[in-house]
Amino acid sequence: MNTAPKITCRDTTWLVSESQDRPLTESESRALEQHIAECPLCSKASVQFQVLFRQLRTYFDREASNGDPS
């Protein structure tokens, strides 16, 4: 019962982008998680996106989010 709809790598890039602007639906999140778990290319890409998003946040100084201990 937990099988999410199959999506392509290209679909995942849309969901990763949209997750920054709106909450994904439950089935979108499941499809995304499942694809990333099974696809080594997307798991690399998603790490890159997360680093990018995190650093953009720091760069634009959302004040308290600058949690660098160094």
Binding site: T8, C9, R10, D11, P40, L41, C42, K44, A45, V47, Q48, V51, R54, Q55, L56, T58, Y59, D68, S70
Partner: peptide, 26 residues
């Protein structure tokens, strides 16, 4: 719709200097 190629992910910059370098590229 599958990635043709994907290099190993980069990670967050760790030091102040590294972050400055990252931001420059960004």
């Amino acid at each position: 719709g599958c990635w043709r190629d994907m290099k190993d992910p980069w990670t967050d910059p760790e030091s102040v200097t590294e972050r400055a370098a990252f931001f420059k590229v960004l």
